[in-house]
């Protein structure tokens, strides 16, 4: 049955590689979670670098922290399967990351409000008080 679908791809790659890819799609393992985490991280970095609105930049930072958390949880699960004694350490660390993220959001948004009162803008390229 599998060979019915292979001819379209056989020009590009051999059948065993296609089977590997299909197996990876049907049975996602650790590396798939890591790739999703990496892509979320890259999206967050792009958001921080590209946007002008400081609130959206804060949201991108939350995205970056979530990508790191996803890696922690994925590795924690991986270690549980290998029978590591303290495999839930990754989940415990994730709790602390969430705590720090909440504190960071509270302080950061307080700064945004103070900044908006003084400078009447939330665009990062208008906030150039320290620029030469």
């Amino acid at each position: 049955m599998n060979s019915l679908f292979t001819p379209a791809f056989i020009l590009l790659q051999d059948a065993s590689r296609f089977d590997n890819m299909k197996q990876g799609l049907l049975h996602p393992d650790l590396s798939k979670f890591l790739i999703i985490g990496a892509l979320l991280f890259a999206i967050g970095v792009a958001g921080v670098l590209v946007r002008r609105n400081i609130i959206v930049i804060f949201m991108s930072i939350e995205l970056i922290l979530n990508a790191a958390n996803l890696n922690f949880i994925a590795f924690s699960r991986y270690l549980q399967n290998t029978g590591n004694v303290n495999a839930v350490a990754g989940q415990v660390f994730t709790v602390f990351v969430i705590v720090v993220a909440a504190a960071e959001a509270a302080i950061g948004l307080g700064l945004v409000i103070a900044l908006y009162r003084n400078k009447e803008t939330i665009f990062v390229d208008r906030i150039d008080l320290l620029k030469w």
Binding site: I36, E62, L63, I73, Q91, T94
Partner: peptide, 20 residues
């Protein structure tokens, strides 16, 4: 961003981390 966070929470459930 809320839907991203909810989806990541669902991935946590798939990884067996319901508390997180």
């Amino acid at each position: 961003l809320i839907s991203t966070l909810m989806s990541v929470a669902a991935l946590y459930v798939l990884l067996g981390a319901e508390f997180i």
